[in-house]
Every structure is written in C-alpha cells, then in structure tokens.
Simulated scan of single mutants.
Amino acid sequence: MHVPAAVLDLTRGARRVAVLSGAGMSAESGVPTFRDALTGLWENFDAAALATPEAWNADPDAVWAWYQWRVALVRKVAPNAGHHALAEWERTAKVAIVTQNVDDLHERAGSTVLAHLHGSLFEPRCSECERPMDLPAPPREPLERIAPPTCDTCGGAGRPGVVWFGEMLPRQPWDAAVAALRVADVLLVVGTSGIVYPAAELPELADRHGVPVVEINPQDTELSSRVEAVWRTTAAVGLPGLVAAVGTLE
C-alpha cells in the first residue's frame, strides 16, 4: 500500500491523532445511509420528516419503530478494516475519535469514541427526564408501529438517542471534540462530505489552531481545497495502509 508522501509526512510521529468520521466510514461495512434505510415498509416515508421532534410528538410509536429497524440493520453488519485500523493505532498513539455516525462500529472494533456528535442509535434516553435507558431488542422484521419503552424513573417515553433535525447538538460531545482538536498533532477527516454543520466546522477549528488536516475520501468534497493533504481512497483501504506505514517508521 503506497501512502502519499504528504499524508505520511503529516501523520509520521503524531502522538495525538484526532479523527472525524462520517457516513463513508460506515458505508463500507454495509450500513445503509440515512435515506437508503427507507426501503421496504419505509420506502413511502420521508426520512427527514421522521427524524424530527415534530414527528415524535405526532406519532412516537411510528418513529420508535423506524429507529428500531435501523438498529436491526446496523446489528447485521460488522466493523470494516478501517475501523479496526483505528483501534490498532490506539496502541501507539492517543486517538480521539469524533464521529457523525450514530452506529456503534467504532466501539465494536475496539476503539474508544470520544464523541458521537449526532448521538447514537444504541443510547436511548427518556424524553422527559433525559435519563439513559436500556435498548430493547429490535424486531426481526420491520413494523410500522412499536410503543417506546417506559422510563422507570419518571414514566416518560423512551426516545432514540440521536440528534434530530431542528435540535441542538449536545454540548458535552461538542466541547470534547473541540478540546481534542486543540491538542492534536493532526486531524484525519474520513468519509465525510464536509457539508453538515456544525461538524463541518471542526476542520476549520483545527486549522485555526495550527493543526494540519488530512482528508481520506474517494471523492472531492467541500473540504478538499482547504486541507493540507488529500488521499483519494476509502477508509477500509487507506486507514490500514496508513497505520501499517506509520508503524514501520516508529
């Protein structure tokens, strides 16, 4: 695997590596994208309309059913080589993973995720008191309606632990991501388009703090012209090659 010299120069010797991962990272594992998940029973629904507080207030049973089907889809796939490479890198460097993905593939590969900016399918919480709740087993087949679980503390309905359209990002994950950037030696932006804000601000923040940014993506993105190095490859191909190359230089 030939790693571009510019990429290798910026990652060689890095002891604090920040990673911003997006949908492209999980797509190689077979995780459907947000809209791709609307197949079969859900193909006549609008994903953007389901992922809102208004949809939840209008019909929580339908919204919960859709998210539980997404949980089932994620559980059918496995972390790819890119996920495993980042977990391996943690053995020799401090790797701070900030992800826009709501799946658990980084964790299942063995990584510690610093921040799920958009929440997680696997961390439901009470819609009333905000306490974390256990995730019930998803249905084997998609269902149009499933009653959400009830909070043992206040009796409120459990809601998906994701950030819906129209909601603010939770402060703690965002602050953790920003803090990691300030001390990073390099930021890798992997599989993200760079158009979803505020996550797309993170490379800009890194640049303002003098942290070089490396993009790993098979396609041009909004970030490509504003980073120090670009590698036109996928996460599952590029990250194992990069980690192996960095390891041989230590």
Rank of each mutant, 00 (worst) to 15 (best):
A48D: 15
N80K: 04
T92E: 11
V95T: 09
A81R: 11
D59Q: 09
E88Y: 03
A72E: 06
Q68K: 12
N44F: 02
R35Q: 12
N57S: 11
P32I: 12
W69R: 08
A37K: 03
K76G: 15
D61A: 15
A51H: 03
A47W: 03
K94A: 11
W69F: 12
G30D: 15
W89R: 14
L38N: 07
V95M: 04
N80S: 07
E88K: 06
M25R: 04
S26W: 01
L86R: 03
V74M: 01
A37W: 02
S26G: 13
L41K: 10
L73E: 13
A23M: 14
V77K: 04
A49H: 13
L38G: 06
A81Q: 02
A62Q: 13
A65N: 03
Y67P: 02
D46E: 14
E43L: 12
K94Q: 07
T92C: 05
W66R: 00
T39Q: 05
D46C: 06
A48P: 04
V31A: 11
A23H: 07
H84S: 10
I97F: 05
L50C: 06
A37C: 10
A55I: 10
A49E: 14
F34T: 13
N44C: 07
A48F: 08
P60M: 00
L73P: 07
A37H: 12
A58F: 01
L50E: 02
F34A: 09
A37G: 12
H83C: 05
A47D: 12
A55V: 11
P60I: 06
M25P: 04
W64D: 02
K76L: 13
P32T: 15
R70N: 00
E88D: 15
T52Q: 06
A72G: 08
Y67W: 15
H83M: 09
P53Y: 04
H84G: 05
W42S: 07
L38Y: 09
K76R: 15
N80L: 01
A62P: 01
A85F: 00
L50H: 02
Q68E: 10
E54W: 10
F45W: 11
A51K: 03
A47L: 10
N44D: 14
L38T: 13
A62K: 08
E88C: 05
H83V: 10
T33W: 15
N44S: 15
Q68Y: 07
T33G: 15
V95Y: 07
N57R: 15
A96N: 04
L86G: 04
A65Y: 00
A93W: 04
E54R: 11
A96P: 07
N44W: 09
W89D: 03
A37N: 05
P79L: 03
D46I: 14
E88V: 08
H83E: 07
A62F: 01
N57T: 08
A81L: 07
N80Y: 04
R70S: 05
W69H: 01
A72M: 10
A81M: 05
F45K: 10
S29E: 11
I97N: 06
M25T: 09
A37I: 11
A81H: 05
A62G: 02
H83P: 01
N44L: 04
T52R: 04
V95N: 00
A96W: 00
R75I: 02
G24R: 06
N57H: 12
G82E: 01
V77P: 01
A65E: 03
W64S: 00
L50S: 04
T33E: 12
A78E: 15
E88N: 09
A58P: 03
P32H: 12
A27P: 13
T52V: 10
W66T: 08
K94P: 00
L41N: 10
P79R: 01
